[in-house]
């Protein structure tokens, strides 16, 4: 299903895009299974309509937004972002959406809102992976308010000029391109504004391995592997050397959000 959008070159890379096939058949979406081929095989059971997103917490206008209204809330843009997975691979994907800040401004957070929390759908009848105990369900992710308000943070409803495929987090997800992929919550049903830092999925069960910030950082290793390099999916084959991973995944414009922070401690 086509989803027209205007490319925003200011927020797009010219790098070669990952093929649609690879981007839709190599996914981490544990609600549909832990193997990266599972989401493509299992996500057809996800019902993306009707769909609503509940907005609550420290906001002046708490509300439940219907998907159709959400999609039309701001003009849709296409942005070609690098995606870096914490596992050490990367892709280049043309997303369709608009800055999350457009939504945030409309619901008017109170001055108490310091963090934003995204909750993904966790429905056993539609998501076979939810019965596994790999993670605590529902999947929860979060950002600091200034990160959420950064224009790069994309409320995403499509990719490759189409409506988001189920396995990529349909019907609505977040894309935060300077953080490891797991920070970008998929299939969102609830957005909460909070005073305190939320307990997020991976950070909650393994804080030594997955920080709350989880900014892409070649200088901070995962305990089990180095983050200095990455394999670009679809770029050559076995014999293609790995790429150097860039700080903030190359999105240096976010550096000012973290001035004065020790990124080795607050990884």
């Amino acid at each position: 299903q086509k989803l027209p959008a205007t490319r925003n070159p200011a927020f797009s890379t010219n790098e070669k895009q990952t093929s649609f096939d690879d981007a839709t058949h190599y996914n981490n979406f544990y609600e549909f299974g832990t193997d990266k081929a599972d989401p493509a095989a299992n996500a057809h059971t996800l019902k993306t309509r009707p769909w609503t997103v509940q907005i609550e917490g420290e906001v002046k206008k708490p509300q439940t937004i219907d998907l159709d209204r959400l999609v039309k809330l701001a003009p849709l843009e296409e942005r070609i972002y690098r995606l870096r997975c914490v596992e050490g691979w990367s892709m280049v994907i043309p997303w369709v959406g608009y800055s999350l800040s457009s939504l945030i401004r409309q619901v008017e957070p109170t001055s108490n809102a310091k963090y934003i929390e995204f909750t993904s759908l966790a429905d056993r009848s539609q998501m076979p992976g939810v019965k596994s105990r790999v993670l605590e369900w529902p999947y929860v992710e979060g950002l600091r308010m200034d990160e959420a308000m950064h224009p790069l943070t994309l409320l995403t409803v499509g990719m490759y000029g189409q409506v988001l495929p189920n396995q990529n987090g349909a019907p609505v997800r977040i894309v935060v391109p300077w953080k490891y992929g797991f920070k970008s919550a998929k299939s969102i049903v609830k957005i909460r504004f909070l005073r305190e830092q939320p307990r997020t999925a991976w950070n909650g069960i393994a804080p030594d391995e997955y920080g709350f910030y989880s900014n892409v950082n070649p200088n901070v290793d995962h305990p089990r592997w180095s983050q200095a390099t990455e394999r670009r999916i679809g770029e050559g084959g076995l014999f293609t050397p790995k790429r150097k991973t860039l700080l903030f995944n190359g999105y240096n414009e976010v550096a000012s959000l973290y001035t004065g922070m020790d990124l080795k401690k607050l990884y």
């Binding site: 690879d22 190599y26 394999r231 999916i233 679809g234 084959g237 076995l238």
Partner: peptide, 14 residues
């Protein structure tokens, strides 16, 4: 499969 380019991430696959 690797020679045929089937695995998305051949290093992980092997």
């Amino acid at each position: 499969l690797t020679a045929a380019g089937v695995p998305v991430d051949p290093v992980e696959f092997l």
